[in-house]
Amino acid sequence: MYKSAVTSGLIADIGPENWQTLCVIASYMDEQGECFPTQSQIAKGLGISRPAANRRVRKLAEYRWQGRPVIETIRKRSPTGQWENTRYTILPISQLRIFEAEPEDIVRD
């Protein structure tokens, strides 16, 4: 997280639920900001039910900071017609970025 997430007012505006949801989804992102967590993984990370996680993800996807989304969601079907995992892209305006490694004192199995 960049300091500007605080100093720009983003964290105050986004609110605790959207910020928490964004952070859980972002914990799965790669260097390009893309990630594919399941709804169950998101729910577990948030400590809530899957339906509640779905509502929070929808709310986050609708949120706009300075008129722009902080996350992009793309849902598509496989060649057999089944829904695949939603692809999330954490956009730069979110002020989140993945680093090469977590500090050793925070890493948990």
Rank of each mutant, 00 (worst) to 15 (best):
V6R: 09
C23R: 01
D13G: 06
A53P: 01
I93P: 01
S40W: 02
R56Q: 11
W19R: 00
R68G: 04
P69M: 06
E102W: 10
P92E: 08
V70L: 15
G33N: 05
D30I: 06
R55C: 07
S94K: 03
E17R: 08
G47K: 14
I106G: 00
L10R: 10
G47T: 13
Y2C: 11
W65C: 13
C35P: 01
A43P: 00
A5E: 07
K59C: 02
R56L: 11
R77L: 15
V57G: 01
R87L: 13
G47V: 15
I48S: 06
I71C: 00
A43T: 08
F99E: 14
Q39L: 04
A52T: 14
I48V: 15
K3F: 15
G9Q: 07
A5M: 15
N54D: 10
F36W: 11
Q95L: 00
D30L: 05
T73Y: 04
R50T: 12
E31I: 07
L60S: 09
R77Y: 05
D109P: 09
V70D: 10
A43D: 05
T89H: 10
L46Q: 03
E17Y: 00
S78M: 13
R97I: 15
G47H: 12
V6E: 05
S8W: 01
R56F: 01
R108T: 08
K59A: 06
F36L: 13
P37G: 05
F99K: 13
A12W: 04
V107W: 09
N54G: 07
W65R: 12
P51F: 07
